[in-house]
Design a protein around this nucleic acid. Structure first.
Lengths: 229, 229
DNA sequence: CCTACCGATCGGTAGG
DNA sequence: CCTACCGATCGGTAGG
């Protein structure tokens, strides 16, 4: 993901967010054996994701997050330089999860055999996107979508790189569908509108009856694609 | 400066934009002739809409709003009971404008003659929605869309009523298109996704080159409708 | 509407 | 990671 060298001592988001998280944080560890195993850091990250999603970034205090993670009010700052760095870490984690899930879903579809039909590929992408957006453990991506304006310019640049990777998987599928006459109109605008249609579900989807993620997928494909070329 | 230069007898048709909200504010008016003409109230409302849109509700201070409206820090509270009440007023104003614009657009289309074709009707609705969302003076509706969670239950109820009115105009059009085979899939889900596709444009549309609202409309219709029944 | 002000809360830090 | 704390800012109000 490489965004490690910002050269500035600015309050940049700590790049190492998720699993690998091998790099040291600001403060020096006393002894290797005492290294933070990431449990507490992950707890802060998850609590932040949930609260940022529910209440928004500005409306959530770092004290709220600390309490939700079972810590004292100043402790989140041991793991993250600032509240903004925490927000950036949540979004980065979200994008990494989304990218990983997308790669897994596409791989699975290919493994299932059959030459890859673009219609089926779009179905896989849509279904996975909805899962990432609305499934369990799905606080990170909604935060990324709806708190974009709270990011600094540098943070946006970093996360935009991952976003482009995510979209890069969609583009050839959409282009092919367009070439086949199954998707009409400007492809770039179509992509933006498709993402909008799906992302908006965050606002109205009721997770109580989440059996309907498949129904949502069907509705999306019915809506976006032409019945026959 | 004069503590009373407000008392200008400037009779104007009730400025209280929020129609039914014509209820008295906290403090009693001294004399009927001295009633606030709404200029300053409108200034506060517009400043709030702009700042809430740009920075979000929680990240905007009432001092920011006061300054943007050319007032002192405590003065917004002369016009609105609280920051939350101000947010509600922004959203209410937004919905009223949107409803009025929608009615005007539909009326205009009917006046232009021709029996009303549903495809054309959808075009009118989409085009108007984009205008309300992205056109000039378009801060109110985006605030409503993206600050929903900051509302109280009672406020949501009021504004939801107007939202239902707004959607009620779309439903018969979408139903008819579905009956004609031009719109596929579950109609309710289709409506939600269409709104999502359009509302999401707030996130990426660049108003600098706003000549493309028509292009957006074309792209939307291409994407959502089947070419032929 | 302005002046002057209050109590509460916030992000963040020093030092252990 | 906790304790103890600071300066800044916030929504809101009394009184004119």
């Amino acid at each position: 993901m490489g965004l490690s060298n910002t050269a500035r001592a600015q309050p940049e988001p700590d790049p190492d967010t998720a699993a690998p998280a091998a790099r040291g944080r600001g403060r020096p560890r006393k002894r290797p054996e005492e290294r933070d195993d990431g449990n507490r850091r992950q707890a802060v990250l998850r609590a932040a994701a949930r609260l940022f999603r529910q209440q928004g970034f500005a409306a959530t205090s770092t004290r709220d997050i600390a309490a939700a993670a079972g810590m004292q009010s100043g402790s989140p700052f041991y793991h993250f330089e600032s509240k903004h760095a925490l927000l950036g870490a949540v979004m980065l984690e979200g994008m990494e999860r989304a990218l990983a899930a997308q790669a897994r879903a596409m791989q699975r579809a290919e493994d299932d055999g059959e030459p890859i039909d673009e219609r089926a590929a779009l179905r896989v992408l849509v279904r996975n996107h909805l899962e990432v957006l609305l499934g369990p453990e799905s606080d990170f991506i909604p935060v990324m979508l709806y708190e974009w304006r709270s990011l600094s310019e540098a943070q946006r640049r970093d996360i935009n790189a991952l976003r482009r990777d995510y979209e890069a998987v969609w583009n050839p599928v959409l282009e092919a569908l367009h070439a086949q006459g199954l998707l009409r109109g400007d492809v770039r605008l179509a992509r933006l509108m498709i993402f909008g249609a799906l992302n908006w579900a965050v606002q109205w989807f009721d997770p109580a009856r989440r059996a309907t993620l498949d129904a949502l997928t069907d509705a999306a494909l019915d809506l976006f694609l032409q019945e026959r070329a």
